[in-house]
């Protein structure tokens, strides 16, 4: 509205800056997204500083059978497990496993899925259709079922869980990016870039990708939550990191035989999983509201 007298470049720059400031302002104004980001930040800090924060850092691998299954008290804030290890310390160290699995598995899935979706969406033809059909088939099966099949074939370890999750989750990003690319491809700015002779990789990376980035970011945040849940389920089934790794899902599985007496044993890692997944879901929801102009508009219209 004020851009009439400004030169095109300066006006665009100012508008972009204003756009980012608005996003930032909305972000801090959106309680849900802010809470989600705080939870995730806490997870990262906990993972980094686990040795410092843990009251008993050695308890990840040391056992004190004399102190097994103690309820929460002043020494062991969250109680102890079947080996007498401090549950709080194990949960703090477990954050490392959770974040490693989630970041690498989702990172790989994004790195595989996004280029596939981009290329399949950009070019029209049977290879694109084939790629999308394959990802449809992957999506037809519950992720955990394929992951179980893969992880079981490979044997239980963190690396194999990561591999299993990457193989099963890439189609989510491929599908999304494919659909978004198809819709952006017909926009004027992409067509004009093509008309001006920009090469295909250049168009894809410089013109299409930035425009679908927000959709990818939202999907990635929600995908992190889903991946953590699946990883925990694999751990619960004994397909994750082998003992004595303080993997949250495995801890819950171990606690089963001690219910109902040791109620704290399952509660603590369960709440840890809940908070982390909640963090990613809240962040994803908040980012969707902030970044996705279509939804913003729909909401604006209703008011």
């Amino acid at each position: 509205m004020t851009g009439g007298a400004m030169t095109g470049g300066a006006a665009t720059a100012r508008r972009q800056q204003a756009g980012w400031q608005r996003v930032l302002k909305r972000f801090t104004g959106d309680r849900a997204a802010f809470l989600g980001a705080s939870l995730i930040l806490t997870l990262v800090l906990v993972a980094i500083f686990a040795p410092v924060l843990s009251p008993f850092p050695g308890d990840v691998s040391e056992f004190h059978t004399a102190q097994r299954l103690r309820p929460p008290d002043a020494v062991n804030w969250l109680g102890t497990d079947r080996m007498g290890s401090d549950l709080l310390s194990r949960i703090l160290f477990g954050a490392r496993i959770t974040i490693t699995i989630a970041v690498i598995a989702v990172g790989t899935a994004v790195l595989v899925g996004v280029p596939i979706g981009l290329v399949a969406g950009y070019y029209v033809g049977w290879p694109s259709n084939l790629l999308m059909r394959v990802s449809d088939i992957f999506l037809a099966v519950p992720q955990i079922v394929l992951a179980i099949a893969i992880a079981q074939t490979l044997g239980p370890s963190i690396e194999n869980v990561i591999l299993a999750l990457s193989i099963t989750y890439w189609p989510f990003w491929a599908r999304l990016v494919y659909a978004e690319t198809r819709s952006v491809k017909n926009e004027v700015f992409v067509e004009s870039a093509i008309a001006l002779g920009a090469s295909a990789p250049r168009v894809m990376i410089l013109h299409i990708l930035p425009n679908i980035a927000s959709a990818i970011i939202v999907r990635t945040s929600i995908g992190m939550g889903a991946t953590i849940l699946t990883a925990a389920a694999l751990g619960f089934l004994g397909l994750g990191a082998p003992p004595p790794a303080p993997e949250w899902g495995r801890m819950i599985a171990e606690s089963r035989e001690f219910l109902p007496e040791a109620w704290w044993y399952a509660t603590a890692p369960g709440i840890a999983i809940f908070l982390v997944v909640m963090g990613f879901n809240l962040l994803g929801d908040g980012l969707r509201d902030i970044l996705d102009p279509r939804i913003r508009r729909a909401v604006g219209r209703s008011e």
Partner: peptide
């Protein structure tokens, strides 16, 4: 939002703990 953040096996155990045990 919370309903999608639970680990189902954990919720199952907590329900068992509460209602059955």
């Amino acid at each position: 939002v919370s309903g999608l953040a639970f680990a189902a096996f954990w919720l199952a155990m907590e329900l068992q703990f509460l209602f059955s045990m």
